[in-house]
Design a protein around this nucleic acid. Structure first.
Lengths: 244, 244
DNA sequence: AACGCCTATCCATCATACAAATAGAAGGCT
DNA sequence: AGCCTTCTATTTGTATGATGGATAGGCGTT
């Protein structure tokens, strides 16, 4: 019987189990993975389940499967790390400062530009959604609530950009925020100040001022980025530093 | 027997055929797709092949499959459009001006920042790769050669950013360049001028000047973006305008 | 040492059977 | 009639066995 628990159907659970194991480095990257048959016995499932899991993971660029060669892990640069599943698996295993840094480096490219696009193209409905998230931030009573509202704010800006590629990055931004909150929490000033700074983004979008929207969003992220870079510089000697 | 030809194994060909059909809008988004059994007879393959294709497409966020409900197309915002396959399929079907515009809007966020990061973090080897691509651009004798070198240049900058997320976007950039070339070709000035402008990016990276690298890269893309936006404004009355 | 042939071992594909989930119809209750 | 429950038929989910096809690596010949 299957030795795992989360997920709907067997193939999906198998996919998660295998995907996690690969991302976490439980298999040697230079060797082949166990054969289909071995995976069947190891996980206690049928070949159908294993094959379907393998297919799903190769659709995400994680592995390849060929006759006589077996199932092999592809070079990491082929992994579809913007895929929500892969993103999640990879963060469960190694949310190091370095990864957080890379997250922020991408956010700092995406979000200010998204805010500028929102200022240009957002519909009244989309602007209302941003305003609503901001209001949720303002009235939040618990840190969890505040985080969720914060995430909703950033996501609603992406939607307001009216660009499908920016919208597609909502999972990425969402994950980045959810993970990094543990780090950026200690530094952030009064919640009220944070809310006010978010408010500047909304205001610029409402006023149809792309430049100002970009700068306001940049400011929100840049603070966290500087902090992380300072932390990175500080830990250049201590080997490992993972938050868990 | 299978009614398609490209690809290695059957499941993959099936995946491509089905994926293309879905992206091209050959199935009603509100109805269920044909059942597994029907797809078997339609494509002349076994149920395993169909199921594996379905699994791969659902791994890309294109469809979902549940008992008694059948195979359904997911809302477009769940599609993993940053996945190389999906990107390709979707551009084969609808490379409209609008999509080109969205492409450029993302490039303008990503690439200048990538150039800045390259100026900060690129290794000598990575800088050499950029230089080599530039040289290939300079010495190109055919338009095809020039395009390939151009693509190599932009990709090498992404690699030089030393950020896995930027590197992951290489397929996106590559596709964007390859598709948009048909549009931007007419406007671009002398090839020599273009090469020179690319050279400014390299120079800034070599001089470890992130700000200048960012501006130089921005300049490269902004020109094309303005052109597309002008074209978009012009065609606001004419209904359809697709390049094929 | 270089080359081509062989073979054992993988995955690829197909076919079949049964289990599990559930949408929608059928029926019964108020 | 309207609502709730039950049942059933349909569709995917899972397991298994059989056969085909590709090929890495060994073996033998030159």
């Amino acid at each position: 019987m299957a030795i795992f628990d989360k997920g709907n159907n067997l193939s999906q659970r198998m996919t998660q189990a295998l995907g996690r194991a690969i991302v976490c480095g439980e298999y040697d990257r230079n060797e082949s993975l166990p054969t289909e048959a071995e995976l069947c016995t190891q996980f206690g499932v049928s070949r159908s389940a294993v094959r379907e899991a393998v297919k799903m993971l190769s659709a995400k660029g994680l592995i390849s499967s060929r006759p006589r060669q077996g199932i092999r892990i592809l070079p990491e640069e082929d992994w579809n790390i913007l895929d929500p599943d892969l993103l999640q698996w990879s963060l469960e295993s190694k949310p190091t400062l370095k990864v957080l840094h890379e997250f922020l480096q991408l956010r700092i490219a995406i979000e200010p530009e998204a805010a500028a696009l929102a200022a240009k193209y957002a519909s009244p409905t989309e602007i209302a959604a941003i305003a609503k998230s901001l209001e949720r931030m303002r009235t939040a009573t618990t840190p969890e609530e505040a985080l969720e509202a914060d995430i909703a704010f950033h996501v609603s800006v992406l939607y307001a950009s009216n660009n499908r590629f920016y919208i597609r990055l909502r999972d990425f931004i969402q994950t980045a925020l959810r993970v990094s909150i543990n780090y950026t929490n200690p530094i952030k000033a009064d919640h009220e100040v944070v809310v006010e700074e978010h408010g500047k983004v909304l205001l610029a979008v409402q006023n149809r001022n792309p430049e100002r929207a970009k700068r306001a969003m940049l400011f929100l992220i840049d603070e966290a980025l500087s902090f992380i870079e300072a932390a990175l510089a500080k830990e250049s000697q201590p080997q490992e530093n993972s938050l868990a």
